[in-house]
Simulated scan of single mutants.
Amino acid sequence: MKKRILVADDHAIIRDGLRQILADTDDLEIAGEAVNGNETVARVRERDWDLLILDVSMPGRGALELIKQIKSEKPRLPILVFSMHPEEQYAVRALRAGASGYLNKEADGTLLVAAIRKVANGGIYLSPFVSEQMARELMPGGGGEPLPHKRLSDREFQILCMLAAGKAIGEIADELCVSVKTVSTHKTRILHKMGMHNAAELIRYAIEHELV
């Protein structure tokens, strides 16, 4: 019996690409799709899935918040995050939130199928980079003083990455379905926590630490 997979991604080309790749397998099938956070939650509640493949950058709620909610309702549902963002941005945070794997969208088809199979069968997929990052955090002392961006909440970190990518506050508010005032408040907190004074410093920091 094939593993039933739910794909949550707002880009049709990604959903179609995944469907085509898995069409050549005997044990995996895309059995459902969602294009935003609310639809993802609704589809998860409809039936028992064997795997959720989740994009980080869908409109609405952040993926990290979404992972936490889904795991609270369906703790046995494995989640593989499939993202265009570098691993340094979200991988460790996604795993902490409850995901069982994180894969960059630049991965080739063979690696993608292997990661999907592993997570769908109850395993955990970690790239060498993510494995090293998590191992460092387990070392005595936590691998040293945490970098400023690691002190941010998941939502603050998401907004930091969006600001660093050059998005305006109004654009971020629209994408996250929140008010401009809320984004501005988050920006003020981010600057305070990171000991910075303006967006230019945030962008410079993000580039230096490969967050964009």
Results as ranks from 00 to 15, higher is better:
1 M>H: 03
2 K>H: 12
2 K>D: 10
3 K>D: 07
5 I>S: 01
5 I>R: 05
11 H>G: 07
11 H>Y: 10
12 A>D: 13
13 I>M: 05
13 I>H: 14
15 R>K: 03
18 L>N: 03
19 R>V: 12
19 R>A: 14
20 Q>S: 15
21 I>R: 07
21 I>W: 03
21 I>Q: 01
23 A>Q: 11
24 D>I: 09
25 T>F: 01
25 T>G: 14
25 T>D: 05
25 T>Q: 07
28 L>D: 04
33 E>G: 07
36 N>P: 00
36 N>F: 01
37 G>I: 06
37 G>D: 02
38 N>P: 05
38 N>L: 05
39 E>D: 15
39 E>M: 12
41 V>W: 08
43 R>N: 08
44 V>P: 04
46 E>Q: 14
47 R>A: 12
49 W>V: 09
49 W>K: 03
50 D>V: 11
57 S>M: 08
62 G>I: 11
63 A>P: 04
68 K>A: 13
70 I>K: 10
70 I>W: 05
71 K>R: 14
71 K>N: 00
71 K>H: 00
74 K>I: 00
75 P>N: 10
76 R>G: 05
77 L>K: 05
78 P>N: 04
80 L>E: 00
80 L>W: 06
81 V>R: 08
81 V>C: 12
82 F>G: 00
83 S>T: 12
84 M>K: 03
86 P>D: 10
91 A>V: 09
92 V>H: 08
93 R>S: 06
93 R>D: 00
95 L>D: 08
95 L>W: 09
99 A>Q: 07
99 A>D: 07
100 S>N: 11
100 S>R: 15
102 Y>V: 00
102 Y>A: 04
107 A>P: 01
108 D>S: 07
111 L>I: 01
111 L>Y: 03
112 L>G: 10
112 L>H: 05
113 V>Q: 09
114 A>F: 01
117 R>C: 08
122 G>S: 04
122 G>F: 02
126 L>Y: 10
126 L>M: 10
127 S>E: 01
130 V>C: 09
132 E>Q: 13
134 M>Q: 10
137 E>R: 15
137 E>D: 10
138 L>T: 05
139 M>F: 08
139 M>L: 12
139 M>N: 06
145 E>V: 13
146 P>W: 02
149 H>M: 05
149 H>N: 06
149 H>E: 15
151 R>V: 01
152 L>F: 06
152 L>P: 01
155 R>N: 07
155 R>A: 01
156 E>V: 09
157 F>R: 11
157 F>W: 09
160 L>N: 09
161 C>R: 11
161 C>G: 08
162 M>W: 14
168 A>D: 11
169 I>E: 05
169 I>W: 11
171 E>W: 06
175 E>K: 12
179 S>L: 09
180 V>Y: 04
180 V>R: 14
180 V>C: 06
181 K>C: 03
182 T>K: 04
183 V>G: 04
185 T>H: 13
188 T>L: 14
191 L>D: 11
192 H>F: 08
193 K>S: 03
193 K>C: 08
196 M>I: 12
196 M>D: 09
197 H>S: 14
198 N>R: 15
199 A>Q: 15
199 A>T: 15
200 A>S: 13
203 I>D: 01
205 Y>K: 14
206 A>E: 03
207 I>C: 12
210 E>V: 02
211 L>C: 02
212 V>R: 13
